[in-house]
Design a protein around this nucleic acid. Structure first.
Lengths: 129, 129
DNA sequence: GTAATACTTCAAGTGTACTTGAGGTCAAGC
DNA sequence: GCTTGACCTCAAGTACACTTGAAGTATTAC
């Protein structure tokens, strides 16, 4: 007995709204789950999937891109190559995003250290040097 | 002679559209620049500001939050404290975003290494272990 | 049996962040 | 002087990612 989760429990555990879960299903990011009396029942694996979606979203992927990364391109010659091209491109973007975030973190930390009341003020100090 | 930039040059160098620059100005993220014959002229510093905005956007800040981080709260008692509270909170979020992006990167790299044609397929492999 | 609560579908509404289009202005080159 | 291209304003339109609301159904508790 795998103890299936209701949509409400999934939402609570994953930190999203039930409406978002239905929306992701509609958008092809989540599998259509089992139903009991018409109601969705999820296996715990869904939580990992939702975490993955959340991570990808943070990385700046659109839901359409996430769908493609999840499922790949429809079977056709070169589907694997196309998927890898997309994944590689996204990998570059993820790395850029990380670098950019590190800079933003630096700036925030600096501003907090020097007790500025705004980045504007702090940036002036930083950029004068 | 500081060689001011037109909005078109700024857009090209910063990798944004001119419409976005005007929009940011309207939204209070960019200072109102000098005008020559009614046309905006920017100092090179604007490029750093646009990079900062881009980074903050990637970090998941809304334009409203970026405005606050840039300018601080309007002068009032406790403005500095409120700004620091916001900045600290955002610092935590930036760190979380970085961690999440690292995981996404791991996943992408793993998927590329094992030559999967989709994350779905690869995730099955990963999660079976 | 009935009330409460969580679920269902479907269509329409919302917020954010821009973009686009209409109609006009400005500076440079021919 | 006229054309070209980049700029201007302002209002309206668009894309994405959900959310909300209406109207109804199912499960559990009493």
């Amino acid at each position: 007995m795998p103890a299936l989760l209701t949509i409400g429990e999934v939402a609570r555990r994953a930190g999203v709204r039930t409406s978002a879960i239905r929306y992701y299903e509609e958008a092809g990011l989540l599998p259509e789950p089992e139903r009991v009396g018409g109601k969705r029942r999820y296996e715990k694996e869904i939580l990992r999937r939702l975490a993955l979606i959340g991570g990808a979203k943070r990385a700046g992927f659109t839901l359409g891109e996430i769908r493609t990364l999840l499922h790949g391109f429809p079977a056709e010659t070169g589907a694997a190559k196309r998927w890898q091209a997309l994944a590689s491109k996204k990998l570059v973007e993820v790395n850029e995003a990380i670098a950019q975030l590190r800079e933003t973190r630096e700036l925030l930390e600096e501003a907090l250290r020097c007790e500025c009341v705004s980045l504007d003020e702090c940036a002036r100090l930083l950029y004068q040097a």
